[in-house]
Amino acid sequence: MSPRVGHVITSGNTREAADVVSPLLSVSNLHKTYGSGPSAFEALKGLDLDIAEGESIAIIGKSGSGKSTLMHLLALLDRPTSGSIMLDGTDTSRLSAKQLNQTRNSAFGFVFQQFFLNAQASVLDNVTLPLKIAGVGRRERTAQGIAALAQLEIDDKAGNRANDLSGGQKQRVVIARALINQPRVIFADEPTGNLDTATGAVVEDILFDLNRRRGINLVVVTHDEELASRCDRRIYIRDGLIAAREAVAA
């Protein structure tokens, strides 16, 4: 069912791209309730979802549908009220706060609608932030940061202040930052929402290219049908449940 090639290269290692045998992320009967008592709001009402290794998936829904909540739970930014999230066969509810932090730091990359760049810091410092959090030394950080920027063809801006870049350049920096820790999944929340059509298309190309060539999973939250249609699978969320699933017609 997957149009991907058999082998993908990730962080220099060859990894077997297995089919849905053991999903990277597996969600079952996921509930998330905000608040309690009469004012409680049930954002997710028992949702099941498997995401295979190397897959790109779009989560689509209106605001308030629960799509962002789902992404936050998948990205281990929040804990579900009930239900389980398995990452690589490990039940994430058993992980300690420290292990969750480490997992997010080493396995996930984040691209948000807003750039969340430190305007005064240099582009390089912004890009290497995940490595700094991971405790990588300065020299190693710089080398990897330049390499990540080179992949996105903005290494000439490494010394610039983040504030001096255009919107498209900023989003490239954000992608470089999401890539620098060699993640297995990139979570993108409306990655093109703040960009004009042309720039947005370039950023999309970059993301899907990473997915295709390096086998990095993409989890895209969007209400842009055009962006969603480029993903392997589309999940439509309505009122906390999956309303429809669509696989790409190869």
Binding site: A97, T103, F116
Partner: peptide, 16 residues
């Protein structure tokens, strides 16, 4: 606020 949120999302512990 947002910077702290981002760093925490990227795995920075509350202690740090």
């Amino acid at each position: 606020t947002r910077e702290v949120g981002l760093m925490k999302a990227m795995g920075l512990s509350s202690g740090r």
